[in-house]
């Protein structure tokens, strides 16, 4: 049975973790940690309660960026109108994760650091160029969010390091993004396939595009060649389908209870094309701001 350490601030938390290497586990919302302890996947001697660390909570918009503290709850992201306008994919992913109760407890940092391949939040953050801030007793560093993930349930964070914030590119206008997923049920289900896409547009053409996938590789996957397929011209059915084909070729899904590898690969192709289409419409102001994209990618009028 673990003991519980409740630090007064981040420095105290980091010092405690440094002094107790290998036997601490940070706990924030607890929705993953409590289950992991119950099934014996995690057996820390000390839980370090992050909830008192007020400085790690909340969103700050600065120019074309938004910085989100690691302790920010997913429910807070889901209900943030400014974020819905600037980074709709992030809000859409937050909204379909778990249930209201789970989202009220779960934090962004927890969802990222648990490093589940099917986790909802990494793909939308990756298409918004997320940079992670990591702190330890010895200082802090930044790295691309993609470099945080090492494999199923594993991150590249060193012992004694904590994820403290994520900074996204989230422009005021001229951009759009979208998150779609395939699930068996609408709620309380993990993605069989998760797809995020973002597009920046100017003068009627795509100037930048990113595609990221969840649940179809050991880690959340950015697919640069998929985004590259649609750059330089208006988005067309052909370019979106080509991007989908490249994403399907880049992923490495497994067969499990949520789908076969073959099925998932086909779903990737379809959802990438659809997500790019919605992101393109949003970048051009033709998809109502803040309107959630249909769950499960079911959609009429904007398919590939």
């Amino acid at each position: 049975m673990p003991e519980l350490f409740q630090p007064v601030d981040l420095d105290e938390a980091l010092a405690f973790m440094a002094e107790h290497p290998g036997i601490t586990m940070p706990i924030a919302g607890g929705t993953d940690v409590m289950i992991d302890m119950r099934i014996g996947r995690a057996m820390p001697e000390w839980l370090v309660d992050l909830r008192p660390l007020q400085t790690l909570k909340g969103l700050a918009f600065e120019g074309d960026a938004v910085r989100i503290g690691a302790l920010t709850r997913l429910r807070t992201l889901e209900l943030n109108g400014e974020l819905a306008r600037r980074a709709p994919a992030v809000v859409e992913a937050a909204r379909v994760l778990g249930s209201v109760q789970i989202r009220t407890m779960a934090t962004l940092g927890g969802n990222l650091c648990h490093a589940t391949p099917s986790a909802e939040m990494p793909p939308p953050l990756l298409v918004h160029d997320a940079v992670a801030e990591v702190a330890s007793r010895d200082g802090s560093r930044t790295l691309p969010l993609a470099d945080v993930f090492a494999g199923p349930g594993a991150t590249t964070l060193e012992s004694g390091e904590l994820l403290t914030a994520v900074t996204l590119r989230a422009t005021e206008s001229g951009s759009g993004s979208c998150y779609l997923r395939q699930t068996v049920r609408w709620s309380m289900d993990l993605a069989g396939v998760g797809v995020a896409a973002s597009i920046e547009a100017a003068a009627g053409a795509v100037t930048a595009a990113r595609v990221a996938l969840g649940a179809v590789a050991p880690v959340p996957l950015l697919v640069p060649e998929a985004g590259a397929a649609v750059i330089g011209s208006p988005l067309t059915t052909e370019s979106a389908v080509e991007a989908g084909a490249r994403a399907a070729a880049a992923c490495s899904p497994i067969t499990d209870a949520r789908g076969t590898a073959e099925y998932r690969r086909q779903v990737v192709a379809v959802l990438v094309a659809r997500a790019l289409r919605i992101a393109w419409l949003r970048a051009n102001g033709e998809w109502p701001a803040g309107l959630p994209a249909p769950i499960n990618g079911v959609l009429s009028g904007a398919t590939s």
Binding site: T31, I35, D49, T104, M105
Partner: peptide
Amino acid sequence: TGDCGACTVLVDGEPVVSCLQLAQQ
């Protein structure tokens, strides 16, 4: 495991699943 919601309570007015909520937190 937080899946069924039968243990839902309000904490400061917001719904949580109390089976995954450390009381000390």
